[in-house]
């Protein structure tokens, strides 16, 4: 009886969030700097059609995928590290991904093999995950404050890598480095949508595969091991997947911070259940949050666009401080 009512509630929340995401996507496709509305899609104006299908739709879909990827990465890091403050941005994993991409651009790899950039981002994300993990690790699990401190240090280090490599690269300047460091969806293309959609699909398959194991991490690794979980294998798969998501997300849009922190907590406020419930809910809530933020960022003062990373930081920083207060 308990399980049935829980499942009903979960399905209801999924349906609700799907409706919100769909609405946000529709609104996002309808409004924009050029004023072309959704109605024009059914009209005969080829320009408006091109704007809606070629520019707004990929951008809105990319925003949705971005939100889902970052929220799921955040949730997975929080679960594995048993730390409610974990987030790809705060941990420095996003920074690692962006410096991987920046180094690729500086070495001219980006121009010859554009497809290599997501791979370099992924490599950077994996490196950063390993570094955070080694820096913050203690005999009994991972210390939350050490984790935040090492993330802070890594972030400064990666910012330096981004600035140096992009300053040294030809035909480039600091505004490009800035784009990587603050996050921006302005360059969204269908290729980006495909890269992120494929990465998200692969990640979700892995995470659904290990969801029943991951949720048992909530009482620690020893406890999970005692419940028959192959802890080391699940950890490896989980960290690699969260890094893949972060790498792909950063490769297509630069660093959008705090989504991974904010979303799982907002979901938990509405529905306090285990990883299997939080996984689909976080993905959808993340999509809704980033699509909405993107619509706000480009319609608040057109034709100017606020960087979306700045908007998520406005939302995320007060929330982070609140959580930090509660933690310590």
């Amino acid at each position: 009886m308990n399980s049935a009512s829980d499942l009903r509630r979960l399905l209801f929340l999924i349906a609700l969030l799907l409706a919100i995401v769909a609405t946000a996507i529709l609104v996002g496709v309808t409004f924009g700097a050029s004023g072309a509305g959704l109605r024009t899609l059914f009209g005969s104006d080829p320009t408006a059609r091109r704007i809606v299908m070629g520019i707004r739709l990929p951008r809105v879909l990319l925003a949705a995928l971005e939100g889902a990827a970052l929220a799921v990465a955040g949730l997975t890091f929080q679960t594995l590290l048993r730390n409610p403050l974990a987030d790809p941005f705060i941990l420095g994993v996003s920074g690692g991904a962006a410096s991987g991409a920046a180094v690729g651009i500086a070495l001219g790899i980006a121009r010859r093999h554009p497809a290599a950039i997501p791979l370099l981002s992924f490599a950077g994300a994996c490196g950063a995950t390993a570094a955070v993990f080694l820096l913050a690790r203690r005999r009994r699990g991972v210390d939350p404050i050490r984790l935040i401190l090492s993330g802070l240090v890594l972030n400064s280090f990666f910012s330096a890598i981004i600035l140096v490599s992009l300053s040294l690269s030809p035909n480039s300047d600091l505004t490009v480095a800035f784009r990587w460091m603050i996050g921006n969806l302005a360059g969204a293309s269908w290729n980006d949508v495909i890269v992120l959609a494929v990465s998200l699909a692969v990640a979700l398959v892995v995470l659904v595969w290990i969801a029943n194991d991951l949720r048992l991490f909530s009482f620690g690794e020893e406890d999970a091991s005692g419940r028959g979980v192959a802890v080391e294998r699940v950890k490896l798969a989980g960290y690699a997947t969260a890094s893949l998501l972060t790498g792909a997300a950063v490769a297509v849009s630069g660093i959008i911070g705090f989504v991974g922190l904010l979303v799982p907590h907002l979901v938990r406020m509405a529905w306090r259940r285990d990883y299997r419930h939080l996984l689909p809910l976080s993905a959808l809530a993340g999509a809704a949050l980033v699509v909405t933020s993107d619509v706000v960022s480009r319609t608040i003062a057109p034709p100017l666009e606020l960087p979306i990373g700045a908007l998520t930081a406005f939302l995320g920083v007060p929330f982070f401080l609140l959580l930090l207060r509660r933690e310590t």
Partner: peptide, 15 residues
Amino acid sequence: NGNHASLAPSLASAH
């Protein structure tokens, strides 16, 4: 200018 180059994929999506 790098910012211009970053617009290319997006413009390409709109042909």
